[in-house]
Every structure is written in structure tokens, then in C-alpha cells.
Amino acid sequence: MPNNIEQKIRDEARRLLTEKVVDVVVGYEEGTLPLLAAPCFITAPEEVDRLIFDASCKQNLAGYVHALIIEHRKSQARVKPEDKTEKTVAVIARGCTSRSIVIHLQERQYERENVVIIGVPCQGYIDKNKLSDKASGKEILAGKLDGDQVVIETAAGESRFPLEEVLAGSCLTCAWPNPVISDFMAGEEVAPRTTEDEFALVERFAAQDENQRWAYFEAEMNKCMRCYACRNVCPSCYCPTCFADQSQPEWVGAGINPSDNQVFQIMRMFHMAGRCVDCGSCVEVCAEGVDLRTFLKKLDYDDLKLYDHRAGVDLEKPSPLASFREDDPEEFILEP
């Protein structure tokens, strides 16, 4: 039985496809593993019933929107100007997804007309690591959502716990669970989380001494196998050639070397300054469980504290590295 939101998503998707308003609807469908939805691409009205939306839907889908539109443009490179077509993509967007789209629009990646935003109010998604802890490391054989509860089955039997306990860190402090821009809303808006402790993580981390902080950073980066899933899933990482893939100059060594791992992550994260919407997708896709959020959140923190900016929240407000003020803080400057 589709839930309320799903029904609305499907109806809207059907309409958009039938009326040929869009070429494709990017959404989530049921996956092959328990409590893990898969991204899907619907192009025919009769397939819209595949679409689902619940806490098993994880990644930010904005990256796909970008890829579809840009790939289409590339494929049109040799088409005569008068014959060129545009691709229009509809996307199921929760708060973070919509913020990533705002970033794309601000960075002039595509036009507002290229994307139809089917907004969904979001209660958060399940963090795979927290879920696995609930199963005490045993394989989860089946799982389902039951209102605000999660029910899982392992070899040890069935267990039930509140969804809240397994929500991703990003979701637990999410101040924008509803899309910041949308063309259609598939449900009543939900209340944002209180933002008071949004940065508690950063403050706690910063309160440790330098060597403790470094030890943690070093240990986390040592886990990385350099698969680049974090970068590839990130909607803000859309560069045609990432620095990590460049060979002239070779910005960062390709091997698993502690220093290269660190430098890769420092620079990728630095590229997220003012551009990370804290969707948590990079954390969720990482097979090695690297804690990226503790570090990314710092950039978010400085974005707010130094430049009173939040990534992708306001189309009209330029991102911090695309703007400046004469009186920007400069306490860090020696003998200013």
C-alpha cells in the first residue's frame, strides 16, 4: 500500500510524464535489500507505481539531475542550434536535495526550467551503521517501517525500535526538512528540528586538544580505500575532472598513503565550503564507515559564523566563496 506521500508523488509523476512536461522522473524505488531503497529513473507513465518515499530512501538525488542535464547537453554538442533540445528532469526532493538544486542554479549549471521539483516533507532516513548496530552486527534478513517504528528480523529474531534511534546524524539536526524551492508539494510540511544543537558536534570536537583532533582525523582517513563513492554521490562534486583524477599536475597520489588520503579529503571537503548541504549522502555511501560529517560540519559552521550564510537555502544569497565584504572577519591575519 503506498503511503500518502507516495500516492501524491506517483500521481504527479504520471501527470508530468503523460503531459510530456518532463523526460524523466528521478526518484526512489524498492531495493533488493531490507530497508534500502534504490534510486530509479522513470520515463513512462505506466511505471510510476515503482516510486516510493520513506526513511529507506537515502541519497540526495540532485547529483543525478545535474548529470542527466549535463550529459544531454554534451550529447547535443554537434546538433545545429535550431535543432537543439533541452532535457527536463523531475526529481523527488526533500529539503537537502532542493538545497543542492539551489546550489546548481546559483552556480549556473542549468536553468530553473530544466528541473521540476516534486517536493517531499522529510522525516529523515535510516543510517546504515546505526541500523547494523541495532542488529548487533547480525545480518538483517528483513525489515520494514511501521509508523515511527522500525521492525527488523535477524537470525536472533524480530526486534522493534523507534525510527528516531537509527536516523542519520544529518537528519537529527536538519533545519530544512522541507524543500526550500519546489513546484509541487507531496504532503504537509513537517516541523524543522531545533537548530540549537546543530553544531554541538563541531563544538565538542573543537574542544579536544590539537593532538587528539589530529589522531581522530588520521584514524578516520586511514580507513579510506579511495573508492571515491563519497565524491561521486555528492551533488556539489560535479566537476568534469576532479582534482583527484588529474594527472598534470598530479594533485594527490592515487595510492593508499596516509598523507594522500588526508590531502584528498581535506581538499574535497574544502571544496564544500559553503556548498555542503549536510545531506549525509557521502557518509551513507561510504563502505568503510569513514566519519566525514564531523569535518564537513565545521565548514558549515564557519559558513554560518563567519559569513552568515547557509548552503543552498536562499537562491538570492551568493555563496561565501563567490562573494566578499570589505569588512569580512580577519582575526587570523598576522599584524593586520
Binding site: 534504490a38 571515491y228 563513492a229 563502505a287
Partner: peptide
């Protein structure tokens, strides 16, 4: 279509 082109599947 949904593939991220990451190395997860092949590296593991």
C-alpha cells in the same frame, strides 16, 4: 543509470 561510478563494488 543510478551507478555512481565509484570503486566500491570492484574494490571489495
Amino acid at each position: 543509470q543510478s551507478c555512481l561510478g565509484c570503486g566500491t563494488c570492484t574494490y571489495l
